[in-house]
Design a binder for these strands. Structure first.
Lengths: 191, 191
DNA sequence: CATCTTGTCTAGCACTGCTAGGATCGGGTC
DNA sequence: GACCCGATCCTAGCAGTGCTAGACAAGATG
């Protein structure tokens, strides 16, 4: 059995390598540059090896997205727990979210822009995604006011996503991001 | 000269045909299905003809986007002008925007999701895009409160785009769209 | 040591956006 | 009306894409 276990370990390690390499390549040159050939070359295996781990490119994007979801949740929780008072925590959450999107554009794309074959907002939604939403919910519930916490969180999230998405694709000038953020926080959140 | 003019007319007509066909194909089967071969076949010309009108596929997407911007501006203006009072006009604007995104998903993608090679929020931004933003600005200025009208419009637009984008890609359940919309309108707009 | 499974690679498919070069058609000139 | 020449269009092809069938070799098992 030890032999089989070793093989499984090696296989798992290679899978992590694939995901890490795809993510790295995407952050460096964008997702368009992440082709199965280039990815295979970078991990020093042939193309078909990728398909013994993932059904296709879409699933690789999905794997990067799940990794990103975990990190996003952690980033949001770290930021909110370091702030005092509901209002300050919401502002910290918003900044942490936009900061994550700016620092990890490819991961953000994998999560919220591209098709990674993941189910969102359903029963079979992967745990990391549920948890990332939960991280938002924890802080935003306190400022939902008379709105349903889940619905409020969805709406607040959508506003943040709109800012992140439009800014990153050059549709909004990046200069006034902070002011837009403060506008969203101050108006959407009930004190 | 008449001959040349006729040729120019025919050429312009063919260009409109290309754009209309690309849009139609995109709405029917998504932008991925809009390949230069399929597009060429539908307009009953060979592929290279496309490149005598547009630099490449990106520019075709851009042409569809510009068409969509004009229609979006018209839709927003029609909706807002039919409502009484600033608050009702804002709600009408938001509904018209989301309605446009839902009815014309491919056009919406061309405008705000894909790369059509257009400049946004700059001096050399095409007129239809500027005008679409102006259509939002006209109504939203009245409810900007103490915020700068332009900045407020950008922020409100981002919130709407977030809703449209996340809903259309299956990241938000479509059921409660109306409630999220009302939340945005009631909290972002000052009465 | 022979066998057989497991894993990997080579080679190839059908498709993509895009382009070079040749053929053909039409208008302008004699 | 005949010719030429330029504009216009198409055939064929390039390099690249995601993905897969089948050959092959290395390893574990008897």
């Amino acid at each position: 059995m030890s032999v089989q276990e070793r093989k499984e370990r090696e296989r798992a390690a290679r899978e992590r390598l694939i995901v890490a390499t795809a993510r790295e390549l995407a952050e460096q040159q964008g997702w368009d540059a992440v082709t199965t050939r280039r990815l295979a070359e970078r991990i020093e295996y042939s193309q078909p090896v990728l398909y013994s781990h993932f059904r296709g490119k879409r699933e690789i994007i999905g794997a990067v997205a799940l990794q990103g979801a975990t990190e996003l949740a952690a980033a949001v929780r770290a930021a909110t727990s370091a702030a005092d008072g509901p209002r300050a925590r919401v502002a910290a959450l918003a900044r942490a979210y936009l900061d994550f999107a700016e620092r990890n554009p490819a991961v953000y794309d994998a999560l919220f822009e591209l098709d990674g074959g993941l189910a969102y907002a359903q029963e079979d939604t992967p745990e990391p995604l549920k948890d990332a939403f939960a991280a938002l919910l924890e802080t935003l519930t306190d400022v939902a006011g008379d709105a349903h916490p889940g619905l409020f969180t969805e709406t607040f999230w959508a506003a943040l996503h709109g800012l992140a998405s439009l800014t990153r694709t050059g549709r909004l000038p990046p200069a006034d991001t902070e002011q837009r953020l403060e506008l969203i926080v101050s108006r959407l959140a009930t004190t």
